[in-house]
Amino acid sequence: MPVTTVTKDPEALTMTVVADFTAPLRRLWDAYADPRSLERFWGPPGWPATFTRHDVAVGGLSQYVMTGPDGEASGGYWEWLSVDELKGFEVLDGFALADGSPNREMPAMRMVFSFEATDGDGSRVTTTTYFPSFEAMEQLVRMGMEEGMRAAMGQMDDVIADLTSYAAGNGVETQILSDTLVRITRVIRGSVEDVWRAHHDPDLLRRWLLGPDGWTMPVCEVATGVGEGYRYEWAPAEGTAGDRFGFTGELLESLPPHRTVTTEAMIGMDGPSTLNELTLTAVDGGTLLSLVITYPSAELRDIVLGTGMTTGMETSYRRLEGLLA
Rank of each mutant, 00 (worst) to 15 (best):
P296I: 02
V159L: 04
I293Y: 00
A223Y: 05
G286T: 01
G246M: 12
E264T: 11
D284E: 15
F89N: 08
L61D: 14
F113L: 12
V304E: 00
V91Y: 03
N276S: 14
P69R: 00
A57E: 00
G88H: 05
T240L: 06
G71V: 04
T216K: 14
G286K: 05
S178Y: 00
D213E: 15
A108Q: 13
M137C: 05
E11W: 07
Y77V: 11
P257S: 01
A325F: 11
A152M: 11
T287E: 05
A33G: 09
V65H: 08
A198Q: 03
T311N: 01
L61F: 15
L305V: 04
N170D: 10
W196A: 03
P48G: 06
Q155T: 08
R189D: 13
R183H: 01
F41Y: 13
T248E: 15
F245R: 10
D213K: 14
T315V: 11
R244C: 00
T260S: 12
V91L: 09
M217K: 12
V83S: 01
G242L: 10
F134H: 13
M266K: 06
A265W: 09
Y166W: 10
Y295H: 13
A237T: 14
D162H: 11
G312C: 00
R197A: 15
L13T: 11
G249Q: 06
Y77E: 02
I188W: 02
G68C: 07
V283H: 06
E193S: 11
L320G: 02
G190V: 10
R206D: 03
P132W: 03
S123P: 02
G246P: 12
R301W: 11
M217R: 04
I293T: 14
D99Y: 03
R124W: 04
E79D: 07
W42K: 12
D213Q: 14
M111I: 08
G229D: 15
L289S: 13
G242K: 07
L289C: 13
L324R: 07
T185V: 00
S133M: 05
V304H: 00
L25Y: 10
S165P: 08
F89P: 05
L97A: 06
